[in-house]
């Protein structure tokens, strides 16, 4: 299950994501352009560290955004979206 390298392994950036009714990302708006999510390759939930002051409650999506860029996006419990790479 190889992955193409993800560009720019920096900190996650806030993202504007349009989600489909089921919650999965449908389109991502970056650089002013709206790009469709072509495929959701994997999705998972991380709900952890709830006993600490920095609890995590996120839904992750490993997506392919047109025209073929691979990215990791996640949605916080607050509803805010972020993108990695």
């Amino acid at each position: 299950m190889g992955t193409r390298s993800i560009r720019g392994l920096g900190a996650p950036q806030p993202a504007r994501v349009i989600a489909s009714p089921g919650g999965a990302p449908h389109a991502v708006i970056t650089d002013g352009r709206r790009r469709l999510v072509v495929a959701v390759r994997d999705s998972w939930r991380v709900q952890d560290r709830w006993w600490t002051d920095d609890p995590v409650d996120r839904a992750y999506f490993d997506v392919v955004i047109e025209p073929g860029r691979v990215a990791l996006v996640y949605r916080e419990a607050s509803g805010d979206w972020f993108v990695h790479g």
Binding site: M1, R41, D42, S43, W44, R45, D62
Partner: peptide
């Protein structure tokens, strides 16, 4: 179970 990789 909602873990990374379980889809595959």
């Amino acid at each position: 179970p909602g873990l990374r990789g379980d889809r595959a």
